[in-house]
Amino acid sequence: MQPVGIVGFGSHLPENVVGPEFFHDPDAPVDPFANAPLFKVPATRHHVAPGERASDMIAKAARPLFERLGGRPPVDVLLTNVLLPDDPFMGVGAQAAHRMGIDPEWIVDLHNGGCASFVYMLELARKIMADGSARTALVAVAQNAAGQMFAQSEVRKRPHAALPGDGCGVAYLRAGGGSPILGVRKRSTPAYAEDLGLRASDGRKYWEPGTGQADIWFDPEKRTEIRERGNTLVPELVRELCADLGEEPSRIDVLVTNQPNRVFLKNWREALDIAPERHLDTFDRFGNLYGAAVPVTLDQAARAGGLRSGDLVVMSGFAHAGDFAAAAAVRWDDAS
């Protein structure tokens, strides 16, 4: 397999910044954990504007990256993941390509990777580029459910609605250049796929007419089990990846994960014995960005000088109720 590296990142955060007061329900009982450090909701998060499409978010995230690369670089492969597709039949890839003014040979809309989708797409890009017929790729993850689904009048009163934020992250890959991807580890457990879904309060399918508001649903009998999966999957995949590379987790310079809440973040870094300053975290500023958290956080860190040449950067996440998880490592190269 020809080496593939990350040349750069780009990100977009919608203009609308929302504070915790947006989610306040005066009729709800007082939550005794509301101000506890581990359970306090993020101070701010961004919400998409009405009419802002996922393809717009991807184009806005790519624009500054393309400018840093000298204009409109060639893109042979475009891989996208969108949490809440604007058009279920169409996907977002072709629309995003049109808005960016690119014409990739490969356009793939990936929907099953969830919060680990960015890592998954790095590996897919490497596989597509393996025979040398494609030499560049753009990987894009858009989280757009916070200002749409979680901002609904009834859904926003539920405790989990205050955690997500909207944003988009992209990465440009090139064969034989950039910060080389050292390895990827993946784990699929299809038996867990039905433990999470989208449910409307009136029981309708999402495409059927009705008045019930749709929200994320977890199997109530498996909540404890799902939390345990989340606590263990990320450290396990990171350890397996480090073993593949002949490295100890203690040698990781920068760890970036999906960011569901502070409890998972704390448990993951403690399990891996990673100091907090080496586990990059944008949760308090942007909330839970789902799959976009990894590229958005890395773009923020790269632009702030938080990534140094030679750093071992490890990315990881778990999806949905634990049916998919992945980890990837790159050796950061500032010159890329």
Rank of each mutant, 00 (worst) to 15 (best):
P295C: 05
T224N: 10
W217T: 09
N261K: 02
G176W: 14
M90E: 13
D103T: 13
E208N: 12
Y120W: 08
D109W: 09
A94E: 13
D244P: 04
P260V: 15
G169S: 05
L110E: 15
A94N: 11
V234P: 00
G178F: 00
M149I: 15
M129L: 14
M100P: 07
E225T: 12
S336T: 10
P180E: 09
E21R: 11
K266E: 15
N112K: 08
L298H: 00
W207F: 14
N267S: 14
G101V: 10
P32L: 07
G8N: 01
C168Y: 02
Y120Q: 13
S55D: 06
T189H: 11
V256L: 09
A293M: 08
G317F: 01
Q300H: 09
F9N: 00
S153T: 14
P104K: 08
G230D: 03
I274F: 03
P220N: 08
F324H: 08
R303K: 14
R174A: 14
E67L: 13
W207N: 11
M121T: 12
T232L: 13
R68F: 05
F33K: 13
L272P: 01
G167K: 02
H47N: 10
H46S: 11
L79T: 04
G287Y: 03
R135H: 12
D311K: 04
P37K: 08
K186V: 15
A193K: 13
V314W: 02
M129E: 07
V254C: 13
H24R: 12
P74F: 05
G5H: 01
V314M: 08
L233R: 04
K40E: 09
A28S: 04
T282E: 13
V234R: 01
D284H: 15
G19L: 08
D86L: 02
P20C: 05
V77G: 06
A62Y: 02
A171D: 00
W268E: 02
E236W: 09
V48H: 07
D25M: 02
G230E: 00
M1V: 09
